[in-house]
Nucleic acid binder design. Structure first.
Lengths: 229, 229
DNA sequence: TGGGATTTGTTCGTATGTATT
DNA sequence: GAATACATACGAACAAATCCC
């Protein structure tokens, strides 16, 4: 894995866990210092994140964490439903014991995180969906579930009210059950209403207060990358 | 528009029109010479195309036009159906005269191109779907219809048999009709079977002969960018 | 409005890694 | 298996744009 990919992943996680909030500036050389890399490398990471629509590149004016509109958020969740419907269809055909084990293992992590900080729970909830995609072994599905999942996570950071995150652990459990029992119709239905519920819980409150700038919240993510040298 | 975005667009069109075939090498400095730009700029374009999965970046081994597998192709077309189904749903609610006009104008281009070179017809067929997405005005839908559409176009370059392209002009016409008459069920159904038909016509023949390397086919695309200075 | 400070955009030389003979 | 040719990876320095006082 590249240094630039590492930085990309670290920033992505930081955004997902709300250490970096929508609208925050991401200056190249500040990031370079934090991560112990040159601007070239940071720049690559930012360009990649921009391609994923997690950051916005304003010409000659630097990068900021993206600030998706409510309409975009709605479209993202609708699209997510469509894609993950396909994931369920693909997955249920070859569903096996190993799949159940891995999904349950992830579910345990989610349960364990319930007591801890909320952002981690939110990240884990997104990663449950990504795990489902990974089990299909389809690079195409994995790629788009990841990307849309991250973008949905970002919109949650903007628009969901705090502590709304009964992140649907129970709903995740029911989806695993439906997959195990081979009930395609029920699994698809559950996934559809789960995602609908997540969107409903989330897309209500337009954030009012400006985020508390600045980059110090990034420090733990940067340290992990630096120490990897 | 950036120079690097121009190069990106030129390469994308070249790939779509099959001037650049899957597996062809794309060395940075060769491209730089052709487009009259430095390696840095070309590199940006290649990285972006890699993010779109149109080219593959092999570490320290250069870039090549992507060579999607048949399975990926199948997943891409399935995903495309799911996304464009959503496009139809969104579009039909606010469908108006201007939309009809623009779609028909595009259809005329497709008809006019029928006599000409096949690659242009194929590109226009893809762009019909992109136009539908654009009419929704949803950046999210536009973004993913474009990307998946281009990737499907690339798979057609690999796997469709030559001259299979009755590219479905008649099917496009019927979709416009259904949209005009406000018949959502029929429009969605037509789109679904249209995309299914495109995939069926295409995903049959595994290409045998190696593509005729090399980059000279790129010249017309490069000239357009150079002369833009 | 102007000008200095800051930040991004770009180039290019060197280092590094891969394939080939 | 070593040497060579080739292409990318990276970083320092310069140029241009923007921001802020």
């Amino acid at each position: 894995m590249n240094r630039s990919e590492q930085i990309c992943a670290a920033l992505r996680t930081a955004i997902l866990e709300r250490a970096l909030l929508p609208g925050m500036k991401l200056p190249e050389d500040t990031l370079g210092e934090r991560f112990g890399s040159s601007r070239t490398i940071v720049r690559q990471a930012l360009e990649r994140l921009a391609a994923e629509s997690l950051v916005e590149l304003r010409r000659n004016r630097g990068a900021v964490v993206a600030t998706p509109s409510l309409e975009e958020a709605r479209d993202l969740f609708d699209l997510r439903s469509q894609i993950e419907d396909l994931v369920i269809c693909r997955l249920i055909r070859n569903f096996n014991e190993d799949h159940v084990k891995r999904l349950n293992a992830h579910l345990e992590k989610e349960v364990a995180a319930e007591a801890g900080p909320e952002p981690v729970s939110i990240r884990l909830a997104t990663e449950f969906h990504i795990l489902l995609a990974q089990l299909t072994k389809s690079p195409v599905l994995i790629r788009y579930v990841e990307e849309i999942g991250y973008r949905c996570g970002l919109t949650l950071a903007l628009y969901s009210r705090p502590h709304s995150s009964d992140c649907g652990i129970q709903e995740h459990r029911e989806i695993i059950d439906a997959l195990s029992s081979g009930d395609e119709a029920r699994a698809r239905d559950l996934m559809g209403s789960h995602l609908g519920a997540v969107a409903d819980r989330a897309l209500i409150k337009p954030e009012t207060e400006g985020p508390s700038l600045y980059l110090d919240a990034l420090e733990p993510y940067a340290r992990a990358v630096r120490e990897d040298s």
